[in-house]
Every structure is written in C-alpha cells, then in structure tokens.
Design a protein around this nucleic acid. Sequence first.
DNA 1: CGACACCATAAATATAAATTATCAGAATGA
DNA 2: TCATTCTGATAATTTATATTTATGGTGTCG
Lengths: 295, 295
Amino acid sequence: MIHPSYLRTFIELGKTKHFTRTAENLYMTQPGVSQHVKKLEQWLGKPLLHRDGKQFEFTEAGEMLLQFAQSQFRAEQSFRDSVHYQQTLGGHCKLACSGGLALQIYPLLLDIQQRYPDFRFSLEAAPERTIIREVKSGEIELGITSEVVQDAAISQQLFGSDELCLVVPQGVNGDWSTLKELGFINHPDGYQFATAVLSSNYFKEFSGMELLPERGFINQIGQILIPVSRGIGFTVVPRSAWQAFELSEQVDVVPLSSPVQQPLYWTHKRRKPLPQRYEMIIEKIELQVQSNLEK
Amino acid sequence: MIHPSYLRTFIELGKTKHFTRTAENLYMTQPGVSQHVKKLEQWLGKPLLHRDGKQFEFTEAGEMLLQFAQSQFRAEQSFRDSVHYQQTLGGHCKLACSGGLALQIYPLLLDIQQRYPDFRFSLEAAPERTIIREVKSGEIELGITSEVVQDAAISQQLFGSDELCLVVPQGVNGDWSTLKELGFINHPDGYQFATAVLSSNYFKEFSGMELLPERGFINQIGQILIPVSRGIGFTVVPRSAWQAFELSEQVDVVPLSSPVQQPLYWTHKRRKPLPQRYEMIIEKIELQVQSNLEK
DNA sequence: CGACACCATAAATATAAATTATCAGAATGA
DNA sequence: TCATTCTGATAATTTATATTTATGGTGTCG
C-alpha cells in the first residue's frame, strides 16, 4: 500500500494546482512534491498529470486518485472517531449457550436490538464443549456454561442455575425398570445430564450410561422432546428446555427425590475484559434466569 | 495518517495471534512486529492488546483496527482495479451549453444513462462566457460554444451550426421601424446574437444595440419567448431555442435576406484529452444538431 | 529446576525520505 | 526582443525513519 503522505500531498496539489504552493502549504520543499507525485505514478503504473512544460492537468487516473485519497482520509477520520467514542448501546455481541437457554434469551436480545438498533447479535446454540472451545478461540466473546472450566485463560462467574428434569412420556412412571425399558433419547449434553440425575436419584440401580439402550440422538432443542412425547424414550434436559417445548403438556417430568441443579456460569476470556456493551445483556439474562427459578 | 505497513503487520498478527510467526510470514524480525504494534498504539492513543506476560488478547480498539485495516486494503485494491479498467460506457460527464441546446441534449443524455446506468451526467445551461470560464477552471470538461476562444489552453472543433432567428409576435412584420417600436427582449447572449443578425440584415438602419429600447431580460430559455408571444417585444435566439419553445406557433420567425449561422464548437482544455466516455455523447449530439439543420 | 518459547527494549545499522543546489523551459514585462 | 522571474525536474547530500542485532525478563513445560 502506498504511503499516505504521498496521498496528502496529491490532495493538496489537487486544491492548489501548483507544486510550489502545495509545498509551502504542507511545510515541505518543492522537489518533495515532485517526488511524491512520481512515487504515486510509479505505484499506479499510470501518469497522473498531463504535463506540458510547467503546465499540467490531471489525467483521468489523477482525478480518480484524488477521489480515492479523500475517501481514504475520511474513512480514517471516522474510524478514529468511532474508536474514541465508546459504544455502550450498540456493537456486535457474540454469545453462545445451550439450546434451551437460547430459546429464552433470543427474544430478550431482539427486544434490545429493537430499542437500540446499533446492536448486532450472534447467538449460537451449542453443546458445552463447543461453547468452551469457541470462547477460547475468540469466535464468541461470552458463553453460558454449566461446567467449571479448568483453564487459566478462562474466567467464570456463577449467576444462576437451571434444574435438570427427567422427562418421560405422559403417564409413564419413573421406575428404573420402566426407564430402562423405554431407553434414552440422547442429545449433545445428554450423557452428562443423565449421569448427573440418574447417579444421585437411582444410585442403587444406575451403573453407567452404557447399560441404557440409546433410542436416538438429536441436536435440535425443539425436537429433543418429540420422541419422548410419542413414547419412544426418556431424556434429561434443563428446565429451560422443557419450558421451551411447545408440547410440554404431552410429556411428564418425574419428581426427583434429590433435585439436580445445573449451575450457570458466565464464561469468557480472563485476559480480555468484556466490553461495556454486554452490561445490559447480562443484566437482562440474569433477570430471566431468576424468574425461571421462581416458577 | 499511519504507515500502511504497520496495518499490514497488524492484520497478520490478527491472523496468527503470534508475534514471531507474524514476523516470519512477513519476512521481518520479531522486534519489528512489536514496534509496529507500539506505533499503532501511539497513533491511536489506545492500547490494541491486553497483554499479560507473553500472552495477549485484542482489545476492543484492536478488533476495530483489524476491521478498519482490512477495509482500507480492500478499498485500495478496488481502486487500483477501477483505474486499470478503462470505463468507456460510464463515469461522470460534465457538460455545459446554451439553454436551447440543453433542452435538446438532455433527453439524449437520459437515453444513454438509461441504457448504461454507470453514466452520470451534469449538464449546465449557461451563457457563452460562463461556459468558457468553467471549461478553463475544470468545473466542466466539455462545453458547446459559438465563440472562438483566443486562449492557448483551450481547444475547439467546429461540429455544426445553429441558425439565429429573429422572433417577433405573431402577425408582426419585420420592418425596422416595427422592431424599434416593439423593443428588445434581452437574454444572456441577447446582445451578441442581435448584433450579429441586425447588423447584416438591417445594415442601413442598425447602428448599435444601445439605440433599441430593452423591454426585459430573462435567463430561462423556456421563458425568453413568452413576452414575444404576448406582443411585448422581439428577440434573437438560436433555432434550437425556438424549436424548444412550447408555444412556437404563437410567434413568427422573420425570414432574413442574409441568414446568420451560429457556429457550434466543442470546447475543452487543450492539454487534457477528453476521456473516452465522451465519445458516444459527442456522436449523439452531432447527429441531433445535423438533424436540426435539415428541418 | 533447567531448557525453551515468547515478547520487550536498546543500540546499531540499513533504508528511505527530505532538503539543498542547480538546471531548463515558459511566461512576463520593459 | 531580451532579460527577468516563475515554475517544475533532477542529482547529490543530509536527515529522518525503519529494521535488525543483541540482549533481557517472564512464563511454560517436561
């Protein structure tokens, strides 16, 4: 890319149409202006001036370069302005969370965007492991996870919890034998969730997920409970996922003797403080999660 | 403005997130990368990296700079492309001519623009002197004039002519005494035109415009002939202006014993060859002017 | 705990840009 | 018409800038 001071010189030459006066205005010497123009011509590979002795006119390329140079300087100016103006009610926010939470959170984000159109949101529904990986890589800036991440590069804050629900087809009881017969509907976090719930509520019978027949796998949050509602199997999902299921009355939630709370952590890079624009989002999401617990 | 090579380095750092590897990829040394980043930070007045020992993350300003730098490079690339691609069927064409011709020419330009939307036209209707001045200053690139300009910076080519018409109210004869009684309706080129026509057709009686009463002055081409149509005075305009007058049947054109042809010259800067994009325009206008003569 | 990987800093060197000095052509004015 | 002034181009020199080399400190991993 060309040295911008050459462009500045050329812009001034466009105004004065006079080498010597250009030099004076820019506090340089006349040969400097000549050399700048020559550099620009070498760079573009085209003459910028029709020269006729000491007279000159701008060529087509010259006129175009004037336009371009000015646009580059304007772009720089507006960039510097935007850097110095801290944008707290706008900007690109990149988040990721579980599918169940995503269904609840997305409307909140849209509300914000409607009120403050300078916001732009990317919300990804993804499994825990993916979220953690993407936070570490910087693809997303703020994740919501339930796992505690053992990584010095990651910082986490507990802000709420989501109860894990054992969901069975309508009218089915929660006996171990029934569950074993039904079989398990798996999803990206299925093994982790099921292990947590079954090991503490069926500690006598449960001895590992490998012994339960897996009846299917689905990674669309809206669809995990469909096979359950049709009597095909049982599964374990966060309460938020069950609440978000449109046919929630066609499945039953088995009351658990020892409920399992799934903690919710804000998860982001430790060394990179979250930009201010996340403040409002965090506040709204925490409110939403608290209201879930009260139901 | 900042040296672009710093930006290039920063872009590479954005890709590698690694000083040493950035240096290798750009065939420079590691301290060079550090110094480039430092220069950029001094320039912006904000840190670009959250540093933590040898680890780092981009700050908000850093992310913004990455975006900006890439957009600057893209802009430069597309500029260079556009310079090397000769645009013959598009671009900004700046023309000026008399009002009468403007009325005829403007539809031609709009036809062209409809077919080739990359064109952009500025057509100014102006008096001769204005046209010449603006061609010299570069405000317009191509003018149509009737005068021969004695100026080494201007180049002209004869391409047609427009007949000057002595226009009187309907039913009025062209006797000198009648004209003198009617009085003159003046316009920007009125004295010049009238002097040319009257001195060669009324050479016995005519002895200067000062002796004719001036009944009005108007610089809108569509309105010059209105006072004439109402019997208020006579005037002299190019045939193109009379043809363009919507009430042309409400005025009479006096047949002249010695018709006066107004030459039409393409007028532009001598040292600045007309860009190719004017080719089609010139062709169309010349055709139009020739068809005027045949009427 | 030692070896290595990584980035920062300072000094030295290399590169690039500015100025000075000078020339040549064109406009200006007596 | 001819000297004078004004303007821009070029070459050589100086100055400024950027890059590299050398080195140091810190964190990481086996």
